[in-house]
Design a binder for these strands. Structure first.
Lengths: 201, 201
DNA sequence: GTCTATACTAAGATAGAC
DNA sequence: GTCTATCTTAGTATAGAC
């Protein structure tokens, strides 16, 4: 049987879950304590974190650590030499990254704009990274495409992936209205048609 | 000079603005009163609305009234006979609808899932309507396309538009990283390439 | 209709017993 | 490390003067 996670870990886990469901401000310390198996309102949380905000920071840092651990996985599946095969895998990979970061994105979405600079920076770096990965790949297959057009195409592509998760969250859909396979297949066909048309040389 | 809006109107306007910025639960009645020019914490709001939730409902209803007033504008620009010309206008129209409803979408995004059934219903109807409009248009230009594929293509298209606003909100961008014209042009080219390829017959 | 004042509850955070 | 108890502030909402 797995050793129970230490209290500090449980607090971070439950806090991030509650923050993503209700937003930072709308989540009380009592609720976090209760979710972590401590007495609600006991203030036991403050033996592990200086404040509620320090707890959010710890959660963001944990997510950033996970992100660093995932880095360089991308290099594993490059260079199949076939446009649609590569794009299929790239789309699946990008959507997977969005899912890994979904909790963080939801917290940012449910929390006031200037509330946490760290939160904002973590999300901005994520979105920028997704756009850069897709833009780079497009650049390799359509070298003649102007950089500004490449950026716009990458943005539409990335928004097509992030948007489906945003919408699902917004509408409280446990699972997307359209199955991921179906959606990704259409996403791939859409971008492939445009790239072949343009950079097909 | 314009007559100052009545207090009740100002309360709804400011409440919706604050709800969209901070979320429903994170916005206090005092803040709404202050924003509407009343004494913070005076409780003057309760002479106009039974409760904070009744105020949110009034704001949702006002948005639904506006939505009804916008209906049937779509019919004005149909039937240009040119795929790319029609798609350009349709994309501009759909993005405009998203902007009109942006405040409502943001409130839903920043507010806990089961908090308001009315809010959820208003957003679901909006997203469904956008998808249906694009799917119908695709169906007219690519009759041979399977319904499930048409739905998937429409979903990618709509997510490409909603996603750009979601992302801008998430990253606190006053204006999008890519100009709307540039973005819409690429969005149009992307979908047009796919539709021509498929239903071009 | 708007104010002051207030009731009541819950928030974030701390002190000290065990 | 976790608890009970408590401090202080802020929340929703109401009562009553003007």
């Amino acid at each position: 049987m797995p050793a129970p996670a230490p209290t500090r870990e449980r607090l971070v886990t439950e806090a991030m879950r509650l923050f993503s469901a209700k937003g930072y401000e709308a989540t009380s310390v009592s609720q976090i304590e209760a979710a972590a198996g401590l007495a609600a309102g006991s203030g036991a949380l403050y033996h592990h974190f200086k404040s509620k905000e320090a707890l959010l920071d710890a959660g963001i840092d944990r997510q950033l650590d996970r992100r660093r651990a995932m880095r360089d996985i991308r290099a594993l599946f490059a260079g199949l030499g076939d446009l649609r095969a590569e794009l299929t895998i790239l789309g699946r990979y990008l959507l997977n990254v969005v899912d890994e970061e979904r909790q963080l994105l939801q917290i940012a979405a449910r929390t006031e704009a200037g509330r946490s600079a760290r939160l904002h920076a973590a999300c901005a770096a994520l979105i920028d990274g997704l756009n850069a990965e897709l833009a780079d790949w497009i650049g390799a297959w359509a070298p003649a495409m102007a950089p500004s057009q490449r950026a716009a195409l990458a943005a539409v592509g990335v928004n097509g992936l992030t948007g489906t998760r945003f919408t699902a969250t917004l509408l409280h859909q446990a699972e997307p209205a359209i199955a991921d396979d179906r959606y990704l297949a259409e996403w791939t066909a859409l971008l492939a048609a445009r790239i072949e048309q343009h950079g097909g040389s």
